[in-house]
Amino acid sequence: MAKGLHPRNVHQGNYDFNALCAALPTLSEFVFENQYNNLSIDFSNAKAVLCLNQALLKCFYNVDFWQLPEGYLCPPIPGRADYIHALADLITTEEGIPTGKQIKVLDIGMGANCIYPIIGSQSYGWSFVGSDIDPVSVKMAGLIVKSNKNLNAFIKLRLQKDEKSIFNHVIKANDKFTLTMCNPPFHASMEKAQAGSARKVKNLNKGKADQKVTLNFAGKETELCCAGGEIAFLKQMANESVNFASQVTWFSSLVSKSENVAPIKKLLTQLGAQQVKVVKMTQGQKISRFIAWKF
Rank of each mutant, 00 (worst) to 15 (best):
K266C: 12
I287W: 05
M1P: 05
A273C: 15
Q247A: 11
Y36I: 06
V242T: 15
E223G: 01
K200N: 07
S256Q: 10
Q160D: 13
R80M: 06
C74W: 00
I291C: 09
A112P: 05
D89H: 05
P185E: 03
K156G: 15
F43P: 00
V276S: 03
K161M: 00
I77C: 12
R289C: 14
F251C: 04
T99Y: 04
F295P: 13
D107W: 07
S253N: 09
L268C: 04
K58L: 15
A273F: 08
G96C: 09
N53K: 10
V105D: 00
K265S: 12
I108K: 00
K47Y: 14
G13Q: 07
N18T: 14
C182N: 07
P7G: 05
F65M: 08
D132C: 04
A209V: 15
T214G: 06
I77R: 13
V63A: 03
I166Q: 02
S189L: 04
H85R: 06
V136P: 01
L179A: 04
I287F: 03
A22F: 03
L27S: 02
E223S: 07
E95K: 15
G13W: 10
Y72L: 01
W126P: 00
S258Y: 08
C225L: 03
N168K: 14
I144M: 08
S253Q: 11
D134M: 02
T214A: 07
T178K: 12
A273N: 07
A153P: 04
E240T: 12
V170E: 02
A19F: 02
K172H: 14
A153K: 10
Q35A: 13
F30R: 05
S147M: 04
F186P: 01
Q236E: 06
H11D: 02
F17R: 01
I144P: 02
Y15S: 06
